[in-house]
Simulated assay, not measured.
Amino acid sequence: DLKDTEASGRVAEALIEVLRQPYTIENREYFLSASIGISHFPNDGEQADDLLRAADLALYQAKEEGRSTWRMHQPELTRRVEAFVNLEAALRQALEREELCLYYQPKVDARTRQVIGAEALIRWEHPEQGLIPPNHFLPLAEEIGLIVEIGDWVLREACRQGRAWMDAGFDNLRISVNLSGQQIMDPQLVDKVGAALTDSGCPSGHLQLEILESFVMRNAEESVRTLSAIRHLGVGLAIDDFGSGYSSLAYLKRLPIDTLKIDQSLVFDIPDDPDDVAIAQAVIALGHSLGLTVCAEGVETAAQLQFLVGEGVDEIQGYYFSRPLPTDAFTEYLKGMHSEG
Results as ranks from 00 to 15, higher is better:
residue 331 T to V: 02
residue 233 L to P: 13
residue 129 Q to A: 06
residue 70 W to E: 02
residue 205 G to W: 08
residue 89 A to P: 00
residue 91 L to M: 15
residue 80 R to E: 10
residue 194 G to Y: 05
residue 108 V to D: 04
residue 170 F to P: 01
residue 120 A to L: 00
residue 127 P to L: 06
residue 165 W to K: 03
residue 173 L to P: 04
residue 278 A to E: 11
residue 137 F to M: 07
residue 11 V to H: 01
residue 188 Q to M: 06
residue 74 Q to K: 09
residue 40 H to D: 00
residue 221 E to W: 05
residue 302 A to K: 15
residue 327 T to N: 02
residue 309 V to M: 06
residue 115 V to A: 07
residue 203 P to N: 07
residue 203 P to C: 07
residue 139 P to M: 11
residue 72 M to W: 03
residue 187 P to K: 03
residue 13 E to R: 11
residue 199 D to T: 14
residue 25 I to A: 10
residue 190 V to H: 00
residue 184 I to V: 15
residue 230 I to G: 02
residue 118 A to N: 06
residue 48 A to D: 05
residue 20 R to D: 15
residue 131 L to Y: 03
residue 18 V to Q: 14
residue 91 L to P: 09
residue 308 L to E: 06
residue 217 M to H: 12
residue 267 V to C: 10
residue 336 G to P: 09
residue 256 P to W: 11
residue 315 E to S: 03
residue 57 L to I: 15
residue 187 P to Q: 08
residue 121 L to P: 06
residue 75 P to K: 07
residue 230 I to R: 01
residue 69 T to Q: 03
residue 280 A to R: 06
residue 14 A to F: 08
residue 118 A to H: 06
residue 298 G to A: 12
residue 333 Y to Q: 11
residue 49 D to H: 06
residue 135 N to A: 14
residue 43 N to A: 10
residue 275 D to M: 05
residue 121 L to T: 11
residue 314 D to F: 06
residue 63 K to D: 07
residue 157 E to W: 05
residue 156 R to L: 12
residue 132 I to Q: 03
residue 137 F to Q: 06
residue 289 S to P: 12
residue 25 I to T: 06
residue 268 F to Q: 15
residue 67 R to H: 04
residue 69 T to L: 04
residue 180 S to F: 08
residue 258 D to A: 08
residue 182 Q to V: 07
residue 53 R to G: 00
residue 202 C to L: 15
residue 57 L to W: 03
residue 173 L to S: 06
residue 116 I to P: 04
residue 153 W to A: 07
residue 193 V to F: 12
residue 213 E to W: 09
residue 163 R to S: 09
residue 325 L to Y: 08
residue 277 V to C: 15
residue 304 Q to T: 00
residue 324 P to L: 08
residue 31 F to K: 13
residue 245 G to Q: 05
residue 152 D to C: 14
residue 337 M to S: 11
residue 3 K to C: 00
residue 45 G to M: 03
residue 264 Q to L: 10
residue 274 P to M: 10
